[in-house]
């Protein structure tokens, strides 16, 4: 089913449970990705996803369509992530927040490169996770979720210029941290 989010919302408001399944199929992955990149902890991210979907299911009756559904759900996830303080324990679990590359183990001669790839991925993950929260949110939404600056501004309730300067600051911080790495 390829209906727009807003149509799914209307159907769910009308009691059509299959609309919720379609919604979850569409949003499951983006929510988990966003929460993983903001919390740096896959288990936390799964909890956030569950809470976000639960809030969606329970709050759908109050959704009036003043903002787009995508804006609404991103806000829910951001707020849930902000409520969870990321600690040292989360930083230690960052390995679990980095995907094992598929087929890594198939070619033995590339073993060294695989290890380096994973190491590199973890360094990048740590660098993103160590950004101040407001910069991290913008970098993650722009880079990994491919949202345009005006959309991010709407989600965050901030002016576009603010969003752009957070992105600029975020990238500069990342640049300084990752300068020694080669692609």
């Amino acid at each position: 089913m390829d209906l727009p989010d807003e149509e799914l919302v209307l159907r769910l408001q009308g009691g059509d449970e299959s609309a919720f399944e379609a919604m979850v199929a569409r949003w499951n992955e983006p929510i988990l990705q966003l929460a993983t990149r903001l919390t740096g902890d896959l288990e936390e991210a799964k909890d956030v996803r569950q809470m976000a979907l639960l809030k969606t299911y329970q709050g759908i009756g109050r959704f009036e369509g003043r903002a787009r559904f995508s804006t609404w759900i991103y806000r829910v996830v951001l707020n849930l992530c902000r409520d969870r303080k990321r600690g040292d324990a989360a930083r230690a679990r960052v390995e679990a927040a980095v995907r094992e590359r598929e087929g890594d183990y198939l070619l033995e001669e590339t073993g060294f490169h695989v290890a380096r790839d994973r190491e590199l991925a973890q360094i990048v993950a740590r660098a993103v996770l160590e950004l101040p929260a407001s910069e991290r949110e913008v970098v993650v939404l722009r880079h990994y979720h491919e949202l345009a600056f005006p959309t991010i501004a709407e989600i965050l309730g901030a002016p576009v210029t603010t969003v752009k300067s957070r992105m600029s600051r975020g990238l500069s911080l990342l640049r300084a941290r990752l300068a020694a790495l080669e692609t």
Binding site: E17, F20, E21, M23, V24, A25, N28, E29, L32, Q33, T36, R37, L42, L53, A96, A97, V98, R99, E100, R101, D117, L120, A121, V124, A125, V128, V139, H143, Y144, L171, L174, R175, L178, L181, T183
Partner: peptide, 21 residues
């Protein structure tokens, strides 16, 4: 820096969305 960011891929969802819903 932008290219480096590509290196961080998060784990895929393994749950069945219908079951999750």
């Amino acid at each position: 820096t932008r290219k480096l960011l590509e290196r961080w891929e998060t784990p895929r969802c393994v749950e069945d969305p219908r079951q999750l819903a």
